[in-house]
Structures are given as structure tokens and as C-alpha cells.
Write a protein that binds this DNA or RNA. Structure first.
Lengths: 209, 209
DNA sequence: CGCTTGTTATAACGCCGTTATAGACCTAAT
DNA sequence: ATTAGGTCTATAACGGCGTTATAACAAGCG
């Protein structure tokens, strides 16, 4: 009896082992990719560089992530996850304007601290990369989160289209200023505090509501 | 006397010939690049593709444009030149709001008709491409043109910083909506007329002035 | 004609993402 | 213990990229 149970336990343990190892390795690969991306951006993110940092061969990128696109999808999800986190501010019992301002500040901070992620989710890779449906879903959730947040600024009776337009307007303003801060032409404008400028534009918008 | 003049003329003619031929070839190379770019964007714009379309070897890209960067600089200049043209609307004797609206419509149209140029001037190539000082100058001129145009909306006594902020706000709005129209997530929103949405946002901004 | 200089086609270089091949390892059956 | 089959993965190769080196060609001069 003891021998039979012993063999069964060993077999169960061995079945779980590879799965855990595979998930751990996948996480290590993604961590390596994130670190390279954070410092060197898309240009530094080659499968050879990731494989080297994760101490595997390039083949591992394909078996665990189905290739570079899988890596980009994971980073895209990371990028929009950061956006969702930035928008996660206290709404209840807080002045709506203060809440939205706080979120915008978070967003501007994220765009700076995670510049590569930000550029990725805004299409730096161009037509060479199309996000997966799963990645797009996280983006959609982020947008819904933005709509919910910014809706506190307008009457609850407003239509869905109105709420969406309001969210898009605020997003356009903030995103626009993020772009100017990094744009080859506008970043050369002297004596501009881009955060202050962006928040001033948001304030103007809020006052117009 | 006639023979001396004849030889001098021949020598002058021969000196001019190569220069004209070089400029013509440079223009043909750039035309080939523009056509490839217009249809296939940055991804299709390889030196081999340009060389093939211009019926030269890749070496010609280097001797005439000092490499791919020179091509990108020329396209960057083209991109901002289109922007300047879009902003070139009648101001005198026209309602300021109508003038700005007209320019915004032009801008939105340009962003659609010249999508690859637009993406290039807004950084699609990322850190792999840095515009030359000459290219940046055209961008600066475009921005100055935008400031001049949008200043008709505010009092002449406004400070330069105020005029600049106003221009940035309108630019952020319009650019933001251009981005959403093409963004993998937001472009999936059903039943959105992006031009109408963008112009509505601009109108809200103008009313807030 | 031979030599020198300038121009340019073409192959090679090192990089890229990806795939094919070979090798290593494990398991089951005999 | 040996063999066969399956799975995983390192590594080389493939075809593309931007760029440079090499060889070939053309023009000019003595």
C-alpha cells in the first residue's frame, strides 16, 4: 500500500513541476524584456537581447511567447495596466475636479516614468505591430475607466456619447501635451513646465463644462 | 577669338551639366521615397526599395542623401511643409473662429491623406531617428504659423506665453483626436465621426476663451 | 596609351526576427 | 538493459535591414 501511494505522489509532483517551471521562466523572460524596454526602449528590445538577459536561447521567446509579438503584447498590457493604475484615484467624497486633476497628474507621471511603454501603447511600432485581442481588451478597460472617472465632472443624466466625448477631450489634451514634451520640435521651447501647461489646459476644459 | 569663346562656352556648359544631373537625380530619389512612403509607410521605406524604384543602387542613397537619415529628414520637411500649407487660411476679414476651424479641418484632412508623413513628424521612428537642425527649423516655422493663426482668437495684448499656450491647447486637442482615430483601441469605438468630434472639442475650447 | 581621380555597382558586414536542424533528455515498451 | 518515440531547446541558417568596403568603370590629363 505504501509503495503504491508513494509512486502516485511522485507522479503527481512531477506533473506539476514542469508547469510551475514554465510559468516561472515565462515571468523571468518578461521581466528581462521589461528591464531592457524601460532603459533602452523599443530599439533595444531584440529577441537576442531578451534571450541573453534571461539566460536562454532565442528559441525560448518563441516557445513561451510565440515570438517577439508575444513580448510586445505583454508589454502593451503592462502599459495600459499602468494607465489604469494612474486613473485609480479616490472619487467618493472628493471634489470631482480634484479627483480628475489627481488622475491627470498620475497619468503625466506615468508617461514620463514609463516612456517606452507609453510610446508602445500609442503606436510607436507602427504597422509592424498590431496588438492582440487580449491586449486590446486591457486598453478598452483603461478607456472605460477614464470615462467613468471623467464622468464625475458632468451631470449623471448626460448621454453615453457625451460622457465618451468628454473623456476623449480630456485624454486628447493630456496626451497632446505628453507628445509635445517629447516632440523634437516643441521640446526645444524654452521655459515650459509641461505638467503645469497640461493641467492648465485640463482646468480650462473643466471650467468650460 | 571665336574658337576661344567656343571652348570657354563648352567648358562652362560641361561644368553645369553634372550639377544639374545630380540635382535631378536627387529629386527623383526623393520622389521615389515619397511614393513608397505614401503607400507603405515607414515599414516599406528601405534603402533597397527606394534604390530599386529610383533605378539606382543603394549607394546612391548615401552619395545623394548621406544615407537613410537624409531621406527621413527630407520626408520630415515634407511633413511639416504640409502642416504649414494646411494652416495657410485666409485670416483678414474672416471671423476668427471660422478661420481656425477651417485650418483645423485642413489639418485633420492632411493627417489622413498623409498619414505616414504625419506619423513620422510625430515620432513613429522613435529614438532611431532624430531630425536634422534643418528639419527641426521647418517644424519650428510650422509651430510659429500655428501660434500666429490661433492668436486671432485672443486679445492682441495677450502675452507671448499666453498665445503659445493657446496654440498648444488647440494643437493638443486636434492631434489627440488624430491619434484616437488611428489608435488600436479607440478606433474600434463604433459610430464615431472623428472629424466632428475633434471640431466639437475645438469649438468648446474656443468658447472657453 | 598609361596614370590618376572621381563615381558607383555590388558584395560583404553585422544586425534583425524567424525557422529548420540537430542534439539532449525523458519516458514507455520490450 | 536497450530501443524507440516524444518533447524541449541550442544553434545555425534563412532572408531581410542599413551601411561600408571593394572592385569596376568612366573621365580627364600628361
Amino acid at each position: 500500500m505504501d509503495e503504491v501511494e508513494d509512486m502516485a505522489t511522485n507522479k503527481t509532483s512531477k506533473d506539476l513541476g514542469p508547469n510551475i517551471k514554465s510559468e516561472t521562466l515565462k515571468a523571468e523572460i518578461l521581466e528581462a524584456a521589461s528591464q531592457i524596454f524601460l532603459v533602452g526602449g523599443l530599439e533595444a528590445l531584440s529577441v537576442r537581447a531578451i534571450a541573453k538577459k534571461a539566460k536562454i536561447s532565442t528559441f525560448g521567446i518563441y516557445s513561451h511567447f510565440q515570438g517577439k509579438k508575444g513580448i510586445l503584447d505583454a508589454l502593451y498590457v503592462e502599459g495600459f495596466t499602468y494607465v489604469i493604475e494612474a486613473l485609480d484615484v479616490q472619487i467618493d467624497g472628493v471634489d470631482p475636479k480634484v479627483a480628475v486633476f489627481s488622475a491627470c497628474r498620475n497619468y503625466l507621471g506615468l508617461a514620463k516614468a514609463r516612456a517606452a511603454h507609453y510610446r508602445l501603447i500609442f503606436g510607436e511600432a507602427g504597422t509592424r505591430y498590431t496588438p492582440s485581442p487580449e491586449a486590446l481588451e486591457v486598453g478598452r478597460i483603461a478607456f472605460e475607466t477614464l470615462i467613468d472617472l471623467t464622468s464625475v465632472l458632468i451631470p449623471e443624466t448626460a448621454s453615453d456619447a457625451r460622457k465618451r466625448q468628454n473623456a476623449l477631450e480630456i485624454w486628447a489634451i493630456v496626451h497632446g501635451f505628453v507628445c509635445f514634451e517629447n516632440h523634437a520640435v516643441t521640446k526645444l521651447i524654452p521655459d515650459v513646465d509641461w505638467t503645469i501647461s497640461a493641467l492648465a489646459a485640463v482646468e480650462r476644459h473643466i471650467k468650460s463644462l
